[in-house]
Nucleic acid binder design. Structure first.
Lengths: 230, 230
DNA sequence: GAGTAGGGATTGTTCAACAATCCATCAATC
DNA sequence: GATTGATGGATTGTTGAACAATCCCTACTC
C-alpha cells in the first residue's frame, strides 16, 4: 500500500502549474535564464530582439515580455533605445550580494534549532551531493550543489520570500562565477568547510556555525573580488 | 574655485538617468503602482487589458509589459488566460512579510553603531515627520512617514539590495493596510514607539532597540492578522 | 437540479508598420 | 589633426489589427 490514498492526486496538483499553465514569455525567460546561469550567455552579450526572437520562435513582443522578467531578476540590463544585455557585475555588486547573503544565511543558521528536520536533512543532502560530484570530477555539478547548500541554509528561516531573495542573489552571483578561471580551484576548498558547517549545525552549535559561515563568506567574497580586479 | 575640475561632469552623469530614459511601459507601471499603494486600486480588482490600455493611452502590448513588471513586484497576480488582478494578501503572506521584515530591520539596528550619521539622521527625520503629520491630523501621511521610518531602519544595513527588498515588502504590505478600517487607530499607537526606538538607537543601546522593534513588529502583525479574519 | 452545448468576451500571440533613436561613417570646418 | 556636423542603415519603441485559445455565462435538455 502506498501512503495516503490521495497522494498521487497531490502530485498531479503540484505538477499542474508546470504544464501548459504558463505563457510563452515565461518559458522563453526560463530558457534564457538557463543559458545565463550555465554561462553560455556571457555578461555583456547583447540580445537583439529580431534575431533572438527568430531563434526562439517567438514574436518580438513576446520576447520583450520575457526580457522584462529577467531584467527584474537583475540577470539582464535594459538600456533604453539600445537593447538588453547580459548583466556584468561590478565589484560593488559582488560586495553587496555577499552583504545580503551574510544577513540571510546567518539568520538561517540562527533558526536551525527550531527548523523542521527535513530542512536540516536538505543541508546534509546538498553537501553529500557536492562531495560525490567532486569525487566524479564533475566540477560544474559541485558548483550547483554548493548553491543548493546555501539555499538550504537560508531556507532554515522558513520564509518563502527569503528563499526567493536568496535564489535571486545566487543566480546573480553566477554571473561572477563564470568570470573565474577554474571552477575547480574555486569550489574545491569549500567542500570540507561545507561538511564542517553541517556537522556544527547538527551538533547544535549554531554560534560556531555562524562564525564559520561568516569566515567562509568573507574568504569567498575576497577571492571573487580579487579575481575581478576592478 | 570649485572643487575638482570635473565635478560638474560627475553631476551630469549622475542625473543622466532621470531624464527621458524610461519606456512608456515603465511609466505606466509607475502610474499603476501609485494607484495601488494609494489604495485606489483595491485588492482583487481586475485590470482588463483593452479598457485599461485605452484609459492609459497605450497599446495592449505596452500595457502587458507594464503588467510583467508589477507582477514581479508582487503587486499584481497574473492568472493565465484569465487576466491580471491586484494582489490580495493572505494571512500567510502577512506573516511571511513580517518574518522577512524582522530579519532585515533587526539586522539594520544591529548595524546602527557603524552606520553613517546621515543614515541615523533619516531615522529621526521620518519619526519627526510622522509626529508632525499626526498633529495636523493627516493620517495617510502618518502612514507613509512610518513606512519611510522602517525603510530607514533597514537602510542601516548599507545594502542597496536589502533596501530594494524592504521597499518591495512594504509596498506589498500596503495591500493589507488598505483593508484596515481606520488608518488612525492603526498608526497612532506606533508614533510614541517609533520615537522611543530612535532614542534607544541614538543612545547606542542597540540591544534594547532590537527588543523593542521585535515587540513592535509582533503586535503590528497580530493586529493586522486579526483584522484579516482569514 | 445536474449536466451540457452554444457563444460572447477576454486573453495569448503574432505580424506588419512606422517613428525615434543610436551608431558608424564621412565630410567640413577651424 | 581634432572637433563638429550631416547622412544613412540598423535597432529599438510603440502601435494597431488580426486570429486562435480559453474562460465563463446562459440557455437548454433530461
Amino acid at each position: 500500500m502506498t501512503a495516503a490514498p490521495e497522494a498521487w492526486l497531490d502530485r498531479i496538483a503540484a505538477a499542474r502549474d508546470d504544464l501548459d499553465r504558463s505563457s510563452t514569455a515565461a518559458r522563453v525567460a526560463d530558457l534564457l535564464r538557463d543559458q545565463i546561469t550555465a554561462g553560455l550567455l556571457v555578461p555583456g552579450a547583447r540580445l537583439p530582439e529580431e534575431e533572438l526572437g527568430k531563434a526562439a520562435g517567438v514574436s518580438r513582443n513576446t520576447l520583450r515580455e520575457s526580457f522584462r522578467l529577467l531584467v527584474k531578476e537583475r540577470l539582464l540590463v535594459h538600456e533604453f533605445n539600445r537593447g538588453v544585455f547580459v548583466r556584468t557585475l561590478t565589484a560593488g555588486d559582488v560586495a553587496d550580494i555577499y552583504r545580503a547573503r551574510r544577513i540571510l544565511e546567518c539568520e538561517g543558521l540562527r533558526n536551525a534549532a527550531t527548523a523542521p528536520p527535513e530542512a536540516l536533512a536538505r543541508l546534509d543532502a546538498a553537501v553529500t551531493a557536492g562531495e560525490r560530484a567532486a569525487a566524479a570530477g564533475d566540477w560544474p555539478e559541485v558548483g550547483t550543489a554548493d548553491i543548493r547548500f546555501h539555499k538550504a541554509i537560508a531556507a532554515l528561516c522558513g520564509s518563502p520570500r527569503v528563499d526567493e531573495m536568496v535564489r535571486h542573489l545566487l543566480a546573480e552571483l553566477r554571473l561572477a562565477f563564470h568570470q573565474m578561471v577554474s571552477p575547480r580551484d574555486f569550489h574545491e576548498p569549500y567542500l570540507a568547510r561545507n561538511r564542517q558547517l553541517v556537522d556544527l549545525v547538527q551538533r547544535g552549535d549554531t554560534t560556531a556555525a555562524e562564525r564559520e559561515l561568516r569566515a567562509y563568506l568573507d574568504t569567498a567574497e575576497a577571492q571573487l573580488i580579487r579575481a575581478y580586479g576592478t
